[in-house]
């Protein structure tokens, strides 16, 4: 008999079958705490679906639906329309789907949902590859990373393409609230989920989450890698509100090596590779700092003229 104070009273329950140290499971707990009971979760096929909903047991204490891999956005749109038609103006419909579903196979349907402006919060949990099928590359996999479909050989060494800039692509749909976060930045993540939840209309969160087998990392370090991703500027935490971008944190930059080291998917990188990655990250960071400045100045100007 478990002591009552050791009982999980959250909306995302224990007993799910995620790997030990799963960064996604940590993120889901934060997300569900921020969303609360009056929520309907729509989930694409993927790790989360498998480790939370093997019949007959479910880790969800809120209504949850999974249909197929690529349709979580339109399923959510259908629920949202149904609630509206039936006079429910309070329940929030939230998609929680992986990078495979969001960056790739369900991308067009997600784009359609954003363009039409359904009242849906779409959360992409980005662990940077198709983990459920055993770590294959996705549009979210970073440059040079090893996966089972971007292998390291004599002529080609890891993924030859760059990560798709999904956050910016979604923002370009004029989605009123777009933000990034990670599982390890729970205060940032919870605050952003709460903010997104209040939007009447579409909103989007892109949340980086560790995958122990996919990244080849030590389970106990799952949160550390996410902190390093932010501290090295690999994954800037930001908000894009009504088109105006703002960095949520401006950590003093750690060298990118701090993030790459110890991840098996990056262990083949040469010093030149790392230098090149560093250069790219610095450029991207400078871009975001510049963009924040321009956007915020413009915003202040518009507000002043109102």
């Amino acid at each position: 008999m478990v002591k009552p104070e050791l009982e999980n009273k959250e909306l995302f329950k224990s007993g799910h079958t995620a790997c030990a140290g799963c960064g996604v499971a940590v993120g889901l707990r934060h997300i569900m705490r921020a969303l609360g009971k009056d929520t309907i979760v729509v989930n694409a096929t993927g790790c989360t679906e498998i480790f939370t909903s093997a019949y007959p047991k479910s880790a969800w204490a809120v209504p949850y639906i999974h249909c197929v891999f690529e349709n979580s956005a339109p399923v959510a749109a259908g629920i949202s329309e149904a609630l509206r038609a039936m006079g429910n103006d309070h329940t929030k419909v939230v998609v929680i789907s992986g990078d495979g579903a969001s960056y790739d196979i369900g991308f067009g349907h997600m784009s359609g949902m954003f363009e039409r402006g359904h009242d849906v919060l779409y959360i992409c949990y980005d662990n940077e590859a198709y983990m459920n099928t055993g770590v294959q590359r996705s549009g979210a996999t970073p440059w040079k990373a090893h996966t089972t479909t971007s292998q390291v050989g004599k002529q080609i060494r890891g993924k030859m393409q760059f990560k798709k800039p999904l956050t910016e692509i979604v923002a370009a749909h004029n989605v009123p609230y777009v933000a990034t976060s990670t599982s390890a930045h729970y205060a940032d993540l919870q605050q952003k989920v709460q903010k997104a939840k209040e939007i009447k209309g579409p909103s989007f969160l892109n949340v980086l989450m560790t995958c122990v087998p996919g990244w080849g990392t030590t389970p106990s370090l799952s949160m550390q890698y996410l902190k390093d991703a932010v501290d090295t500027h690999v994954w800037p935490l930001m908000e894009i509100e009504n088109g105006f971008s703002k960095l949520s944190m401006k950590p003093e930059k750690k060298p990118v090596e701090a993030y790459l080291k110890g991840q098996k998917r990056f262990r083949h990188l040469t010093e030149e590779d790392i230098a090149e990655i560093q250069e790219m990250i610095d450029e991207r960071w400078d871009h975001w700092v510049w963009k924040e400045k321009v956007d915020q100045e413009r915003k202040a100007g518009l507000e002043a003229s109102e």
Binding site: C67, P74, V75, A76, G78, S80, E81, A82
Partner: peptide
């Protein structure tokens, strides 16, 4: 897919 969501709701 929207019909699936709507009917489920």
């Amino acid at each position: 897919s929207m019909l699936v969501g709507a009917s489920a709701a």
